[in-house]
């Protein structure tokens, strides 16, 4: 009986982990990634009328926003579902973005609209994001560290919290002066088509950092998905990993909401698709897959919307509708289990 298994042999076999059906998940990822790039290229380069430079500049901004949206929503939702061991909840359903809206609104109420306009330096943006992240992390860690919380109770708590935060935001917005409200609403109503080009590099930076942190822990995420008890048994510091994951989710949602405005069901749609398409439980594949699928859905959808239906601004509406429908179907099916 060899007890010294901690020492690894010098040359690990190059074969894929046994048990995973060959390399097929990686192949699937490759195909989806290629399709996503193709969709992005189609969106950028086809059907240009008039000045190419003007069109490409506008489209690049939108494409950047789509990439950020796909990454933030896809990865945040996947991560959230993994650490909460739940395929129905998403950060948006649990009110993460409501926390962001409330934080922004409170900032304007306390310091005035001038403050918000003047706080556009990266330092200040960073400070308020950190504040929001700290609050959301604290709140949701408290909610999810409870033992065996019932799914429906959590859902109810999340929806109620989200509504409470939204109502509080609405109330605070009522007492603002029109000028301040104007500043705030510009800040809060991001859209794919009208994303703020200056924010994008920061958003991409935040995505890159979070992505690096998350991807490095892909094996630990696999274990976390087995639940607290199994994770602890296998030597994963559950409390720390859960907190870290929720911090990452908060950052991603903050970025997403800042650049694109609140989206409730897009992340859910991407997460459901990801698990269906990837055909594996391993986050080394799942995480990039959610990003690629998000880009594919957004870029492909936007392309079709603009050039087939001539309805440019409708994509998010359609996606939210589709995502909401899938959510209801899954919830109802789960409800009968």
């Amino acid at each position: 009986m060899a007890e010294d298994t901690g020492t690894r042999p010098a040359a690990p076999p190059a074969a894929p982990p046994v048990g995973a059906p060959g390399v097929r998940p990686w192949l699937r990822l490759g195909v989806v990634a290629a399709l996503a790039v193709l969709a992005l290229a189609c969106y950028l380069l086809l059907f240009v009328r008039g000045s190419f430079e003007f069109a490409i500049e506008r489209r690049l901004t939108t494409a950047g926003a789509m990439v950020v949206a796909a990454f933030t929503q896809g990865v945040a939702t996947l991560l959230f579902q993994t650490v909460t061991q739940n395929r129905l909840l998403t950060p948006s359903i649990m009110g993460f973005d409501s926390v962001y809206v409330l934080a922004q609104t409170a900032l304007v109420v306390v310091f005035g609209g001038g403050a918000l306009a003047a706080t556009d330096g990266p330092g200040k943006v960073l400070a308020q994001t950190l504040l929001m992240v700290a609050f959301a992390t604290f709140l949701f860690r408290w909610l999810f560290s409870g033992r065996r919380a019932d799914l429906h109770v959590l859902l109810l708590v999340g929806v109620a919290l989200g509504m409470a935060f939204d109502s509080l935001s609405t109330f605070l917005q009522r007492v603002l002066s029109p000028a301040d409200y104007d500043v705030l609403s510009v800040r809060l109503s991001g859209r794919l088509g009208t994303a703020d080009a200056e924010l994008l590099p920061w958003a991409v930076l935040a995505c890159a950092v979070t992505g690096f942190v998350v991807l490095r822990r892909h094996a630990r995420l696999d274990v976390l998905e087995l639940g607290r008890d199994t994770a602890v048994n296998l030597g994963v510091d559950h409390r720390r990993e859960l907190t870290l994951a929720l911090v990452c989710v908060s950052v991603l949602v903050a970025v997403s909401t800042a650049v694109l405005g609140p989206m409730t069901f897009f992340g859910f749609l991407v997460a459901v698709l990801t698990r269906q398409v990837a055909g594996t439980h391993r986050h080394a594949v799942l995480l990039p897959m959610s990003f690629a699928l998000g880009v594919l859905v957004l870029a492909g959808g936007q392309f079709v919307m603009e050039h087939v239906f001539y309805a440019t601004g409708m994509l998010t509406v359609v996606l939210e509708f589709l995502g909401g429908a899938v959510f209801l179907v899954l919830l109802l099916r789960k409800g009968t289990l």
């Binding site: 298994t5 995973a20 296998l234």
Partner: peptide, 20 residues
């Protein structure tokens, strides 16, 4: 097999070696 492979996580951190 995937489940049982998780038992090796404390030793290999998710990358199965020949020993695992």
């Amino acid at each position: 097999r995937e489940l049982v492979s998780f038992g090796r996580f404390p030793h290999c951190g998710g990358r199965l070696t020949a020993t695992d």
